[in-house]
Write a protein that binds this DNA or RNA. Structure first.
Lengths: 151, 151
DNA sequence: CAAAATTTGTTTACAAAGAAACAATCTCCC
DNA sequence: GGGAGATTGTTTCTTTGTAAACAAATTTTG
């Protein structure tokens, strides 16, 4: 009878509780939070790592393409790349091909660093969704890929 | 041979392409982007709406509990609630019970507004994931709920 | 019961991300 | 070839969200 809600479990989300967009926002926040609890200050944040990983696997990729694939806006990408350049991770090159564009490559030093970062990053990623069964987890991954429009 | 990646579809994500955390970040960005394309400036942003919706369904809920459920940090919640109060959507009340806490309720005017906002909000939410079959979509919703630890 | 520790919310200072305006280059089409 | 329009990246300004230090109230504990 009109008792104020005192614990998060008692909160009635109503239709919000089955709204996909809402659920995904929650999921992402949860993953991000646990990432910092567990991986802590392992120097590279998820956003930075994903940028570096994609550059590792696609040397010479253009800034615009990188941004499209990772859904990072141009203005923000400029800042990210500059920061990574300042840290000596990447180098930029203007192709003769199209002198507006910028091609990004890992520096020789960074190649090994990023591979190593991949070790713990994917170890963490593999632990995401461990409250699901293996089958469910795989199903979820597949559905997410289809949802996004990958593969 | 060594041709720079020119289109997003050609980008090789390698293991990142099946990493759940990464996929969810992408999914959420995609949903958010489409939200603004389609719903545009329908006055209420997703974050604001979800706060108001939860207050509607849990009158007198405490700020801290609201934050826990929606994964919004205390500092940020303070700002959100104050903004909503300035717009006349919510009122705050200090319970005798615990004079540190704040109980939030919708103003009488806001109740109808939020119900109406629910109309278009959930219409949009229902359209999320329409590139999946109905069965897949339902499966995805269920897996997401389990993943998050709901229900 | 009183001091210590915890919880709740606010404030201030900062980081992450986006929007809009801009400059440079390139493409298209007459 | 030469302008109109599109693309690419940068800059500046604003929004959104977090972190850390704080104040007030509450709970715990010796």
């Amino acid at each position: 009878m009109d008792m104020p809600i005192r614990t998060a479990d008692n909160v009635d989300l109503d239709r919000l509780g089955t709204a996909l967009g809402f659920l995904m926002r929650l999921a992402q926040l949860k993953i991000y939070e646990r990432f910092f609890e567990e991986v802590g200050e392992h120097q590279l944040k998820p956003g930075e790592f994903s940028v570096l990983w994609v550059i590792l696997n696609n040397p010479g990729i253009r800034q615009s393409v990188l941004g499209q694939r990772l859904m990072i806006k141009r203005a923000h990408m400029t800042k990210l790349i500059r920061a990574l350049e300042d840290q000596g991770f990447v180098s930029r090159r203007i192709p003769d091909d199209d002198r507006r564009a910028v091609e990004i490559t890992l520096t020789p030093d960074a190649v090994e660093k990023v591979r190593q970062a991949g070790e713990w990053f994917f170890t963490y990623e593999d632990s995401v969704g461990s409250n699901l069964s293996a089958a469910e987890r795989q199903q979820l991954t597949g559905l997410m890929r289809k949802f996004i429009g990958l593969g």
